[in-house]
Design a protein around this nucleic acid. Structure first.
Length: 236
DNA sequence: GCGACAG
DNA sequence: ATCTTGTCGC
């Protein structure tokens, strides 16, 4: 099902306001829990696509059976863009749409896998952290780029990893999900340990670099955006 | 001050 | 993220 994105009245309008929100919410992140075991229950991927010219955003949430990776449920949301893209403030652009899609699901999401960062963030409060605090759900971030962080190249075999570093602080892990292919960048969101986040990521990547959750959500939100644009119902 | 910078 | 064709390879 597709719902409409609603932007809260108190949503930040400036970068300073957005950073202040991050500084305030950061203390509510829970890092002491291992999180759900890989391979059981449900795992949900979320992703967002944009049409800046038409001020349109589309989000998707796809629930997979963690054992079989088959799609169990999905939902989409379409609406207006809530914030410009600013490095470090991605969550303010993605979260209203993601919350709408998650809210439209017919069943609980279980672990949520985000396309971006959690702890690996300039203020240690990326998209996955933010989404976790707002929903209370266990979340992790799996990103395609190292952002400003550094790491040694992991060994070639799938499953190899290297610490993702902010100076001397380990903020995540560069994790090889396919032999000899560029790693993905895993970081903790809310209520999941880094070891468990990496185990989940490996369980979700039987054939591709990116987790099946992210791949399914990416395809679905693109389709939702194309349909919204084509039908014209949300065009300003 | 100048670049770099998740999606 | 998005603009964009064909092409090489499993």
């Amino acid at each position: 099902m597709t719902t409409t994105v609603r932007i809260p009245d108190d949503w930040p309008a400036t970068e300073d306001q957005a950073r202040a929100v991050q500084d305030e919410l950061r203390g509510r992140v829970v890092l002491g829990e291992p999180g759900p075991p890989p391979g059981t229950g449900h795992v949900t991927g979320v992703d967002v696509a944009y049409d800046d010219d038409r001020d349109l955003v589309a989000a998707a949430a796809v629930v997979l059976d963690a054992g079989t990776l088959e799609v169990v449920a999905e939902a989409t949301a379409v609406g207006r863009i809530s914030f410009p893209y600013v490095p470090g403030l991605l969550a303010f652009r993605e979260i209203p749409a993601v919350l709408a899609a998650l809210g439209a699901l017919p069943r609980p999401p279980g672990l949520v896998v985000c396309d971006g960062y959690g702890l690996a963030h300039p203020r240690r409060f990326g998209l996955a952290s933010h989404l976790g605090v707002l929903t209370g759900l266990p979340t992790i971030g799996v990103a395609k780029n190292p952002f400003t962080f550094t790491h040694e190249p992991p060994a070639a075999p799938r499953g190899s990893s290297a610490p993702l570093l902010a100076g001397a602080e380990e903020v995540g892990r560069a994790l090889r999900t396919r032999d000899g292919v560029k790693p993905v960048y895993v970081s903790v969101g809310h209520r999941v340990s880094l070891d468990n986040a990496c185990a989940h990521t490996l369980a979700l990547t039987p054939a591709h670099r990116q987790p099946e959750t992210t791949r399914r959500a990416d395809a679905l939100c693109r389709r939702a955006l194309a349909e919204a644009t084509g039908a014209g119902e949300y065009v300003a």
